[in-house]
Each structure stands twice: as C-alpha cells, then as structure tokens.
Amino acid sequence: MHSRQNLSFWTGEAGDPVMAAELCQSLLPVRQRVLGPEHVDTLTTRHRYAYWLAEAGDTATALLLLQQLLQMKERCLGADHPDTLTTRHEVARRVGEAGEPARAVALFTELLPLREQVLGSRHCSFLTSRHEFARWTGEAGDGESAVQMLRELLPLRRAVQGPYRPRTLTTWHELARWSAHCGDVGSAVEMLRELLSVRETVLGARHPHTGETRELLSRLT
C-alpha cells in the first residue's frame, strides 16, 4: 500500500493530478478495510485524495473533504499534531481558491504560529504555510506586503530546501507575479526569464508549472 501511495504522489508531482486523485481514490477503500478508517495512513490517503482533487480543479469537493477530515484528525490525533496542522493548511489554501482570500489570510494568521511552534521556523511545511500566507495576502488586496513576504521567504527556501526544488521555484514565480502586479514589470520579466529556463530543466517543458511561468512571461512581454 505504501508503494501505491508513493505512486500517486509522484504521478501528481509529475504533472498529472487527475490520475493522482484516481490512484488515491482506488487506494482509500483498501486502506480503510485493512487498517481501519481512523488509522494514520488511512487519514493520509484521504488527505492526499482531497489534495489532488483540488489540484485537478475540483476545489469545492476537495474543500468539503478536507473540512470533514480536519474534524476527524483533531479527534483522533489532536489539534496540535503535525498531520492535523497539514490539513488545516490545506483547508486555508482551498478556502482562498474557493474565492475567499481574506478568510484564507485569517486562517493562515492563526495557523502560522502553531506550525512554527510545533515544527520550527525552518521546517519545510512551515515555509509552505508562509508561502501561502503571502499569496493570499496579495489576493486579498495587499500586493506590496505579499512582495515583501516572498522576498524574505525565497532565500530561506533556497537555503533550506535547495535552489531548484519545485516549491522553491513556486515561491520564485509568485515573487515575480506580485512584483509585476505592483508595477515592477522589469524585475518580474528578468526573474521569469531565468525561472523559465530552470523550470524547463527541472520539471520539463510540458509541466503545468513550466507552462504557467511561460504564459506569465508572454503576457508581460
């Protein structure tokens, strides 16, 4: 079952969230039958299923599943368990994607100190929450603050996670996007040109994130 879970994860990371969601969906009843509905591995599969559904575009269903899962994790694992906080992160993120950026900012404002306390300020998951907090701060109307947050976060992600890791590149892309939004188009274009070359090398020319950077660069130039 662990191999099937890993297969779904890397399928999604390779740019096929639809297939990743289908793989998780087929694995979930197996884990429920063998391990039980409240086993930590079963809860992980439920989380990943909702995650890949959202990545595939079904935000509404994913958010409903995540909210249900969060209640279960709080009961089974505790409110401060790292896995519970991971699902809280996803709920906040998908709330923003469902059209409520201000509420997403409020949820991340509550979540960030908890994640820092439990995981530490340099933990990858905490850095991911900082990224999403910056993103939704911008979407809620404060682009200048988003730029400042991302400028502070990017060198930290490079140092902790590596300069060419996909999530580091995501922060790089967001910094360029919000820089352009705030009027610094020249710097944004320069960042995007360099980033596009890196994403093509690391992710491949056909990966959705590479296409996202290519599209933004095309719009700005």
Rank of each mutant, 00 (worst) to 15 (best):
M1N: 08
H2T: 08
H2K: 00
Q5I: 00
Q5G: 11
L7G: 07
E13T: 12
E13P: 04
A14K: 14
D16V: 11
D16Q: 10
D16E: 14
V18A: 14
L23Q: 06
C24M: 03
Q25Y: 07
S26Y: 10
L27A: 01
P29C: 15
Q32V: 08
R33A: 15
T42L: 05
T45V: 11
T45S: 11
H47K: 07
A50S: 13
Y51P: 00
A54R: 04
E55F: 02
G57I: 10
T59V: 14
T59D: 12
A60I: 00
T61E: 14
L64M: 09
L64D: 14
L65S: 10
L66G: 08
Q68S: 15
Q68A: 14
Q71M: 08
R75W: 09
T87V: 15
R88T: 08
A92L: 02
R93M: 04
R94S: 08
G99K: 02
P101R: 08
P101M: 09
A102Q: 10
R103V: 15
F108V: 05
E110V: 10
L111P: 11
L114Y: 09
R115M: 07
E116Y: 01
E116A: 05
Q117E: 15
V118C: 03
R122V: 04
T128W: 03
S129V: 08
H131I: 04
E132H: 09
E132P: 00
F133D: 03
F133L: 07
E139I: 01
E144G: 04
E144V: 14
S145D: 04
S145Y: 00
M149N: 01
M149F: 03
E152R: 09
L153I: 07
L154Q: 09
P155D: 14
V160W: 05
P163V: 13
P166F: 11
T171H: 02
E174S: 09
S179Q: 12
A188P: 06
V189D: 07
E190H: 05
M191E: 05
L196G: 09
L196K: 10
V198E: 14
T201F: 01
T201Q: 13
V202H: 06
A205H: 08
A205W: 01
A205Y: 00
H207L: 12
H207E: 13
T213S: 15
E215P: 00
E215Q: 12
L216N: 10
L217D: 01
R219Y: 12
